[in-house]
């Protein structure tokens, strides 16, 4: 406990806690939509794109990598969504192509141009996010705060529209809603969340961070609102638990969080089974 208290005094740890709370919050919001809309594919693909962009940024030597990663990821999100709509199968293939391509190019660039002596360490950090959350600068924290607040406001503002469009797209279209615009917005929000979450868990584990809380909540709750609220709570609890555990036992942050998320899912799964069994 003393050790934990000591850690909590450190500004570095405080910053990490603020940022991860925000990320956990935002990533859970869009989880349900992501799970239901086959966007989980896109989410996964985008995280690889973000990885590629990050390597390019590192090679070019940008001090603030976000400047490159964010626009690239957002643009890819829009492009993937656009093509994915026309033809479903080709869309999936395209996503796979883009994501694996970005991953390969990213690694290649890092390999060729990297000046660091510990290359595999660097790559590992980018993929699994080990400690980057603890080395955030103040400006990165601010960027994260602003983006999270924007995502949150956007989600709140368009909550009912997101529900309507996700639940029944052709009805939404028939009654004159601007379905394409909302899809675009959802894609942009997902891209932003992915870029943010990359700091916390690294690009390989992002999907887990986004999807696990939603899946857990869907075991227990039956309405969109309840699922969203519970997913957020679940995500906050798991992320904070994960971070504290990783501080105390010096385990990698990202994988610890995702492990806690998975454990949370298992608990919800069994609770759901038991409740369902009793009711039936």
């Amino acid at each position: 406990m003393d050790k934990l208290w000591m850690y909590l005094q450190l500004p570095m740890v405080q910053r990490a806690l603020i940022v991860s709370t925000l990320i956990a919050f935002c990533s859970a919001l869009l989880g349900v939509t992501l799970v239901l809309k086959r966007y989980s594919y896109i989410g996964d693909g985008l995280s690889h794109v973000a990885f590629g962009a990050m390597s390019v940024a590192a090679v070019v030597g940008l001090t603030n990598e976000m400047v490159l990663i964010l626009p690239v990821t957002v643009i890819c999100a829009i492009l993937l969504l656009r093509t994915g709509q026309n033809t479903k199968i080709k869309g999936d293939a395209l996503i796979a192509m883009v994501s694996v391509g970005a991953l390969a190019i990213g690694y290649l660039l890092m390999n060729i141009f990297s000046t660091s002596s510990n290359l595999s360490g660097d790559v590992c950090t980018t993929l699994f996010g080990s400690t980057s959350i603890l080395t955030l600068s103040v400006s990165e924290v601010w960027l994260c705060v602003i983006l999270s607040v924007l995502v949150f406001i956007g989600f709140l503002f368009f909550y009912h529209k997101i529900f309507c469009v996700t639940f029944d797209e052709s009805f939404a279209r028939a009654v004159g809603m601007k379905v394409d615009l909302y899809h675009l917005m959802i894609a942009v929000m997902i891209a932003v969340i992915i870029v943010l979450a990359m700091n916390l868990v690294g690009s390989l584990l992002i999907s887990a961070l986004v999807i696990f809380p939603a899946l857990s909540a869907m075991r227990l709750f039956k309405s969109f609102r309840d699922v969203t609220v519970f997913a957020v709570i679940m995500s906050l609890i798991c992320t904070l638990t994960g971070i504290l555990v990783s501080l105390l036992y010096s385990t990698p942050v990202g994988s610890t969080i995702v492990t806690v998320d998975a454990a949370g899912f298992l608990i919800c799964f069994f609770v759901g089974k038991i409740r369902g069994g009793v009711r039936a």
Binding site: V32, H160, K161, F163, C164, F167, D168, F171, A172, V175, M177, A217, M218, F221, K222, S223, F224, R225, D226, V227
Partner: peptide, 13 residues
């Protein structure tokens, strides 16, 4: 996950 109320209300969109 969608309750009946949520679905009906979404018509008002």
């Amino acid at each position: 996950p969608a309750s009946v109320t949520e679905v009906v209300l979404s018509g008002c969109q």
